[in-house]
Amino acid sequence: MGLEAYLVVASLLFCIGLFGALTKRNIVMILMCIEIMLTAVDIVAVSFSKYLVPDQILLTGHVFAMFIIVVAAAEAGVALAIFISLYRRRATADATEIDLLKW
C-alpha cells in the first residue's frame, strides 16, 4: 500500500474525532473523540516514517508517535480526575450544563 492510503485513513479518523469532540454532550465522549484524533496523528507520523526514505525506516516519526502516546496517557489521567471531581460537586457529566465561564 502507498503512503496516500494511510493518509486517507488518518484524515477520515481525524475528521470523525473532530465531529464527535465538537458535538457530543457527555464529557467522557468528548475525551474519547480527542483520543481518536490523537491516534490519527500517530498514524500520519508512522506512515511518513516508513515512506519518506525508500527501503528504509526513518525512526524520528516513531519517536514522535511515542511522545504523543505519553502525552495522551497523561491527558486522559488528568481529564478523568477532573470529571470525577466535577461529578462529585455538580452531579452532571453533560458539557452543556457546565457553563460557569459562558457569557
Partner: peptide, 12 residues
C-alpha cells in the same frame, strides 16, 4: 486509557 474511560463512564 480504555480502562480509565470505562471507569469514568461507570463512575458518572
Amino acid at each position: 486509557i480504555s480502562m480509565l474511560i470505562m471507569f469514568a463512564i461507570v463512575m458518572t
